[in-house]
Deep mutational scan, measured.
Amino acid sequence: MASQGTKRSYEQMETDGERQNATEIRASVGKMIDGIGRFYIQMCTELKLSDYEGRLIQNSLTIERMVLSAFDERRNKYLEEHPSAGKDPKKTGGPIYKRVDRKWMRELVLYDKEEIRRIWRQANNGDDATAGLTHMMIWHSNLNDTTYQRTRALVRTGMDPRMCSLMQGSTLPRRSGAAGAAVKGVGTMVMELIRMIKRGINDRNFWRGENGRKTRSAYERMCNILKGKFQTAAQRAMMDQVRESRNPGNAEIEDLIFLARSALILRGSVAHKSCLPACVYGPAVASGYDFEKEGYSLVGIDPFKLLQNSQVYSLIRPNENPAHKSQLVWMACNSAAFEDLRVLSFIRGTKVSPRGKLSTRGVQIASNENMDAMESSTLELRSRYWAIRTRSGGNTNQQRASAGQISVQPAFSVQRNLPFDKPTIMAAFTGNTEGRTSDMRAEIIRMMEGAKPEEMSFQGRGVFELSDERAANPIVPSFDMSNEGSYFFGDNAEEYDN
């Protein structure tokens, strides 16, 4: 993207840094990872977990959730003011799984939030270390993106479920800051804005008074975040219109849905970061690795190297396929839920299948599930090659597409044709070009129609051997075009429920 120079890199967003050079960025990201790792080690000690239990991804998720809940100030305040039966607002906890007599047992633990905050700050040299908290939120978000298709949420806001490739980060909490905003897809931002506008339509006082002023500035800020994701002048001009509207209503909703559809071809720039579970960072720190000293990046080879040398386990339900569970977590670790499966298959070195073909449910185990038949197995999170994460949407291309997802959002900077089903997408653009945004709409449609099938995206960008740390010898991959490109292809993934 041309304006790259004016933006802070995501590592800076990730670490609240002012302008830093590459070495400083690597050190501050490393410091953040160190903090998460030290916190995780301490929690495993508190909970008396064995090494194996500490490497269980379900335990990692519970521990991450506990610290996120302990620092969720708004919710904590709300819980104190609106006490609900049987919930102690000062405590947080969740299921911890232990191996007892050759069987997995679930144990519900409860801790004072104050105590968890103390352990977290102690692991982070006394700081609140917001960057580390956001990092864990993005890992949870990436896992949700890989596990669930947001059909219901899309339909509720009037969008087409086939636009799911635009929904990265749709389950990120509001408090995820600049680093969170960077990884949100165009569809996620559109959905947040539509929800806001709908509230304004239904509630006369939404934009009024002292609160209304705050609401208005939040609305304009979200519009600017979305505008910054678009790469064409016409899309940005249309966002200006939406932002400046005196009284946002149905016309703005129409414009936003139009823009979301246009992003299936004229893709937005959305950041991709490899955020790993805390149970990967903990053992690495415990083994003596100093992330701050060595430096770390979320968008280069580092996460690949770390996963190459990590042992992570997962509980497996009786009829689940461990290899499929591994694929789910591998995609989440690489922030690749909406990437082209052919690119992923090449990088991973084994075939990556669409969601609907995987015999696996989510990673988390519900409290009512029976533990008797639970097994555990090693997650295979290694890769054959590594590639640089991208934040450009890439230019655009036609490809055989599917009944489910009709476009992709690249996660890796790797040369390819970008699949999208042009006739299906263009069919949504018939007729409606009147109104105050008509010239911009016409211009956007013209650009979409001009998108050429034979153009290559990320020209000359390749993948790298894991021994090639400096990215000196790019390998331009070859793809098996007979395979499906979309992950949520004609899909039956479970729906995400809060």
Results as ranks from 00 to 15, higher is better:
residue 25 I to Y: 00
residue 471 A to Q: 04
residue 16 D to T: 03
residue 214 K to A: 13
residue 16 D to V: 02
residue 261 R to N: 05
residue 351 K to H: 12
residue 382 R to W: 08
residue 194 I to G: 00
residue 202 N to Y: 09
residue 317 R to E: 02
residue 59 N to K: 13
residue 152 R to A: 04
residue 240 D to C: 03
residue 442 A to E: 02
residue 173 P to I: 03
residue 374 M to E: 02
residue 146 T to N: 15
residue 437 T to F: 02
residue 378 T to H: 03
residue 94 G to D: 13
residue 498 N to T: 13
residue 25 I to K: 13
residue 330 W to M: 09
residue 139 W to E: 07
residue 245 S to H: 01
residue 381 L to Y: 01
residue 25 I to T: 00
residue 203 D to A: 09
residue 405 Q to Y: 01
residue 471 A to E: 01
residue 159 M to K: 05
residue 418 L to F: 02
residue 390 T to F: 05
residue 283 P to N: 06
residue 43 M to V: 08
residue 140 H to M: 08
residue 184 K to M: 09
residue 445 I to Q: 10
residue 148 Y to Q: 05
residue 168 Q to A: 15
residue 315 L to G: 02
residue 435 G to T: 07
residue 280 V to S: 02
residue 207 W to I: 02
residue 129 A to I: 07
residue 89 P to M: 04
residue 375 E to V: 08
residue 70 A to K: 05
residue 116 I to E: 03
residue 170 S to N: 05
residue 31 K to P: 12
residue 228 G to H: 08
residue 389 R to A: 14
residue 356 G to W: 12
residue 78 Y to T: 01
residue 3 S to E: 00
residue 187 G to S: 13
residue 336 A to R: 11
residue 24 E to Y: 10
residue 99 R to P: 02
residue 255 D to Q: 08
residue 228 G to K: 10
residue 454 E to Y: 11
residue 201 I to C: 13
residue 20 Q to K: 00
residue 213 R to P: 04
residue 29 V to C: 08
residue 298 L to T: 02
residue 221 R to Q: 08
residue 38 R to H: 12
residue 206 F to G: 03
residue 12 Q to S: 12
residue 258 F to D: 03
residue 455 E to T: 14
residue 243 R to E: 07
residue 345 S to F: 08
residue 99 R to D: 05
residue 375 E to T: 07
residue 358 L to M: 12
residue 47 L to C: 12
residue 254 E to T: 09
residue 187 G to F: 04
residue 18 E to A: 09
residue 337 A to I: 03
residue 165 S to T: 14
residue 394 G to L: 00
residue 120 W to M: 12
residue 235 Q to G: 09
residue 132 G to P: 06
residue 341 L to K: 09
residue 388 I to A: 05
residue 473 N to H: 09
residue 368 N to P: 10
residue 207 W to S: 03
residue 192 E to A: 04
residue 176 S to V: 07
residue 46 E to M: 08
residue 91 K to C: 11
residue 292 E to T: 03
residue 488 F to V: 05
residue 272 H to Q: 14
residue 338 F to D: 00
residue 406 I to E: 06
residue 497 D to L: 11
residue 441 R to I: 10
residue 283 P to I: 14
residue 487 Y to T: 02
residue 174 R to A: 00
residue 223 C to M: 13
residue 174 R to Q: 06
residue 301 I to N: 07
residue 193 L to P: 06
residue 236 R to W: 07
residue 315 L to C: 13
residue 281 Y to A: 11
residue 389 R to I: 01
residue 483 N to S: 01
residue 127 D to W: 12
residue 45 T to A: 08
residue 72 D to R: 14
residue 384 R to K: 15
residue 334 N to K: 02
residue 157 T to H: 02
residue 491 D to N: 14
residue 436 R to P: 07
residue 72 D to L: 06
residue 6 T to I: 10
residue 22 A to L: 01
residue 239 M to S: 07
residue 19 R to I: 02
residue 199 R to V: 13
residue 321 N to P: 02
residue 127 D to Y: 05
residue 450 G to W: 05
residue 384 R to S: 11
residue 342 R to M: 14
residue 99 R to L: 09
residue 465 E to M: 15
residue 264 L to G: 09
residue 262 S to A: 15
residue 74 R to A: 11
residue 406 I to Q: 11
residue 369 E to W: 04
residue 31 K to L: 03
residue 88 D to L: 03
residue 271 A to C: 06
residue 369 E to P: 12
residue 300 G to L: 03
residue 472 A to I: 02
residue 460 G to Y: 00
residue 176 S to G: 14
residue 171 T to C: 14
residue 467 S to A: 01
residue 30 G to F: 13
residue 120 W to G: 08
residue 283 P to C: 02
residue 145 D to I: 08
residue 220 E to H: 13
residue 264 L to Q: 14
residue 203 D to M: 04
residue 376 S to H: 08
residue 145 D to M: 12
residue 340 D to L: 07
residue 161 P to Y: 00
residue 466 L to D: 00
residue 173 P to W: 01
residue 295 G to Q: 05
residue 110 L to T: 07
residue 167 M to T: 08
residue 443 E to F: 03
residue 456 M to D: 01
residue 194 I to V: 15
residue 303 P to N: 04
residue 257 I to Q: 03
residue 12 Q to G: 02
residue 450 G to A: 11
residue 189 M to E: 05
residue 201 I to E: 01
residue 186 V to D: 01
residue 478 S to I: 03
residue 391 R to K: 14
residue 93 G to C: 02
residue 220 E to G: 12
residue 156 R to P: 06
residue 388 I to Q: 07
residue 111 Y to R: 02
residue 164 C to W: 02
residue 193 L to W: 07
residue 133 L to D: 14
residue 58 Q to R: 12
residue 297 S to D: 02
residue 191 M to I: 11
residue 317 R to I: 03
residue 281 Y to F: 07
residue 228 G to N: 14
residue 327 Q to F: 08
residue 441 R to V: 04
residue 331 M to Q: 08
residue 218 A to Q: 09
residue 180 G to L: 03
residue 216 R to W: 09
residue 245 S to Y: 09
residue 327 Q to E: 10
residue 116 I to H: 01
residue 496 Y to T: 02
residue 304 F to V: 15
residue 86 G to H: 15
residue 309 N to Y: 03
residue 462 G to I: 00
residue 271 A to P: 08
residue 479 F to M: 01
residue 176 S to C: 05
residue 36 I to S: 10
residue 342 R to Q: 12
residue 162 R to Y: 09
residue 58 Q to M: 01
residue 288 G to D: 07
residue 413 S to A: 07
residue 80 E to V: 12
residue 93 G to A: 04
residue 457 S to V: 02
residue 273 K to W: 02
residue 407 S to W: 07
residue 455 E to H: 12
residue 75 R to E: 04
residue 491 D to T: 02
residue 333 C to H: 01
residue 103 K to C: 07
residue 315 L to Y: 06
residue 159 M to D: 09
residue 284 A to S: 03
residue 6 T to K: 00
residue 375 E to A: 02
residue 35 G to T: 11
residue 355 R to H: 10
residue 43 M to A: 13
residue 162 R to N: 06
residue 91 K to W: 07
residue 134 T to Q: 03
residue 458 F to W: 14
residue 316 I to S: 09
residue 112 D to A: 09
residue 225 I to S: 12
residue 105 M to Q: 10
residue 15 T to V: 08
residue 318 P to N: 03
residue 380 E to H: 09
residue 298 L to C: 10
residue 489 F to S: 06
residue 451 A to S: 00
residue 369 E to H: 15
residue 114 E to M: 06
residue 381 L to Q: 15
residue 447 M to Y: 02
residue 3 S to T: 07
residue 262 S to Y: 13
residue 19 R to H: 11
residue 491 D to E: 14
residue 40 Y to V: 07
residue 245 S to E: 09
residue 205 N to M: 05
residue 171 T to F: 03
residue 303 P to R: 05
residue 57 I to C: 07
residue 116 I to Q: 03
residue 129 A to Q: 11
residue 42 Q to H: 12
residue 229 K to W: 12
residue 9 S to K: 00
residue 255 D to V: 02
residue 483 N to D: 08
residue 411 A to V: 14
residue 17 G to C: 15
residue 314 S to D: 05
residue 384 R to V: 08
residue 98 K to P: 05
residue 270 V to G: 09
residue 102 R to E: 03
residue 477 P to C: 02
residue 484 E to N: 03
residue 121 R to V: 07
residue 373 A to N: 15
residue 365 I to C: 07
residue 268 G to S: 15
residue 263 A to T: 15
residue 312 V to G: 03
residue 193 L to F: 05
residue 108 L to N: 04
residue 480 D to Y: 14
residue 298 L to R: 12
residue 273 K to L: 03
residue 276 L to R: 06
residue 236 R to P: 11
residue 215 T to R: 06
residue 172 L to H: 04
residue 316 I to F: 04
residue 6 T to C: 02
residue 468 D to N: 10
residue 387 A to H: 02
residue 129 A to F: 04
residue 302 D to L: 10
residue 399 Q to F: 03
residue 118 R to F: 09
residue 231 Q to C: 07
residue 146 T to E: 01
residue 43 M to F: 11
residue 132 G to Q: 11
residue 15 T to F: 11
residue 159 M to Q: 07
residue 426 M to I: 15
residue 464 F to P: 15
residue 460 G to I: 00
residue 182 A to V: 11
residue 202 N to E: 02
residue 184 K to L: 07
residue 28 S to V: 01
residue 82 H to R: 10
residue 285 V to Q: 05
residue 418 L to P: 04
residue 163 M to L: 12
residue 112 D to I: 07
residue 5 G to Y: 03
residue 241 Q to G: 07
residue 60 S to L: 11
residue 87 K to W: 01
residue 48 K to M: 14
residue 216 R to Y: 09
residue 295 G to D: 14
residue 23 T to K: 05
residue 268 G to L: 02
residue 37 G to S: 15
residue 275 C to A: 13
residue 34 D to R: 06
residue 212 G to K: 13
residue 403 A to I: 04
residue 49 L to V: 14
residue 379 L to N: 10
residue 126 G to E: 10
residue 268 G to Q: 02
residue 345 S to Y: 06
residue 298 L to S: 10
residue 225 I to H: 08
residue 77 K to C: 13
residue 317 R to T: 04
residue 440 M to Y: 15
residue 17 G to V: 02
residue 50 S to A: 15
residue 157 T to S: 15
residue 26 R to M: 04
residue 219 Y to H: 14
residue 246 R to F: 07
residue 402 S to K: 14
residue 468 D to R: 00
residue 463 V to W: 00
residue 58 Q to A: 10
residue 80 E to H: 08
residue 299 V to I: 10
residue 417 N to P: 12
residue 367 S to H: 05
residue 240 D to W: 07
residue 158 G to P: 04
residue 8 R to D: 01
residue 34 D to M: 15
